[in-house]
Design a protein around this nucleic acid. Sequence first.
DNA 1: AACACGCGTTGCGTTTTGGGCAACGCGGTT
DNA 2: AACCGCGTTGCCCAAAACGCAACGCGTGTT
Lengths: 308, 308
Amino acid sequence: MKHLVTFRMIDAIARTGSIRSAAEQVNQTPSAVQRRLQNYEDELGYEIFQRTSKGVRLNAAGEMAIQHIRQTLADTERLNSLIADLAGVRRGHVNIGCSQALMPYFLPAQIARYQARYPEVTFNVQVMEHSRAAEALEAFQVDIALVFDEKTVPDYEVHLAVPQRLAAIMARDHPLARHKILRLRQCYEYPVALALRGFSGRLLLERALHGKTFRKPPIVQSDSFEYLMAHVATTDAITFQIQIGAPDASQSAPQDRGIISREIDTRDVTGGMLLLGLKRNRALPVAASRFVEQITLSLSDEYRPSSD
Amino acid sequence: MKHLVTFRMIDAIARTGSIRSAAEQVNQTPSAVQRRLQNYEDELGYEIFQRTSKGVRLNAAGEMAIQHIRQTLADTERLNSLIADLAGVRRGHVNIGCSQALMPYFLPAQIARYQARYPEVTFNVQVMEHSRAAEALEAFQVDIALVFDEKTVPDYEVHLAVPQRLAAIMARDHPLARHKILRLRQCYEYPVALALRGFSGRLLLERALHGKTFRKPPIVQSDSFEYLMAHVATTDAITFQIQIGAPDASQSAPQDRGIISREIDTRDVTGGMLLLGLKRNRALPVAASRFVEQITLSLSDEYRPSSD
DNA sequence: AACACGCGTTGCGTTTTGGGCAACGCGGTT
DNA sequence: AACCGCGTTGCCCAAAACGCAACGCGTGTT
């Protein structure tokens, strides 16, 4: 789109915080970018960026302008997707910001399923926690947020909220593996390996452990779930993850050889919510909109926690 | 705004139905307009207009495109108004589509009051009945619709609905003028002059007259309220108008010398609604938004029908 | 204190884009 | 058959955008 190059440049400037780096990002010279910015500011009648010694920063007017600019860019993309859809082809691009827990099983499966029907649709999946996801929604950086949140009222539109139980993950031949449902106290008879604070499952667990006498420090912490999985696969340690991020018996993925998950009794852990968030009043492109429909259905069916 | 000339041209083409007339409207040659349209269609990858022998017409893709284009134009205007407002000045333009009944008293007073505070805000007021107003809202031709509607559920957002009683209008020295409230039967003891079917007051009256034995044909009909007013001022005939369009004792306007209005008993006429309509999900420019606030307040206070 | 660095900005020559003019092809009308 | 009004296109010129190089100016370093 020809008439949007200025907007793309300004968006790049706002993101990078400098004209030169924005120029690099759009493969142009700084002078070209600077001139387009200046022209736009002249048309608007106000400066949008405050010039500092080490770059530029949006001012009050700029905050409103960038909102309009990103809105316009998003709307344009939506128009393209609408027309493409009308012409019979489903193509487009979907940006997703989501919790780590969705990376190993849920999203790969969902996206694979979607792309099986619509191969022309491309995806971009990025891990972020919920406050960052809210920002990204607002700035049109992601179309869909899929995050775990156990308490706060978010400032985006919650399109869907499904409760999430906690699951314990252990080696396939672990003594506890013969139970279907575990009490937290049982798990804590073994060493525990935990994700860092800030991860979804950890949050849930910490709340559950509050005041419990059997609580003890983890023998190992890590920000890598790959590590935690490998660790419990080869020892008698136990780690935790929210349900949707735990290996599921029904759909064993290649990477979970040697590990298995068991649900924690709901008496011990009150589940948080997995939220599907959208930007308020935003009309999504067709591809994103249909993808939301798909995962809404999936989450309502398969992933609804089994009532015990 | 430089990057919107193409959009303005395409909007003009869509409205006028021809490239040449659109060119005239934006003071350019047909070739220039045609090229911009062609460029846009190339960028989009689809034709937007179906070429006919006597002009062009939007096709399916075009319907979606024109929606986006008008949305973008409106959003741009809104950004300008937001930034102007932030800079302390209130300027801008408000387009209003409204029933005839608001023209003689209500809107002039409201706009005058608003412009007394914000002289830089300009207005455009256009008479239209409610279905046309709904279209105009949808096509971003008006920001605010202020129409009388007694029944149907409108497809725009009803921001405010105030009930409207019917009033009889007669000469100042008419025998009935000594009553405060009139029964319909009393009025029909005199000749009646009516607006054409389709006008707000006429609709209300027709419903009230349904099945009444004293009903009789009007001695004169007209689409001009100026004529009707002049007629009743010089004869003993009576005409009707909804409350807000009738001369008000509290604020006598220069044009209503010789005429006076009296409310009709609510037992005879169940009032319709005066609706303040906005386009759904549309963010209004500052000036329009504040004007809506003002008339909302005014309608809630002054024009709420006095409870008899 | 002098220096280098990275930033936004600007002057100038070049390239690309856009506009006006006139003419063409085409359907419907007279 | 001639005509009219429509969208469209080739050609030429004007205007806008771009790249390059250089400048001024703060900041942090040596």
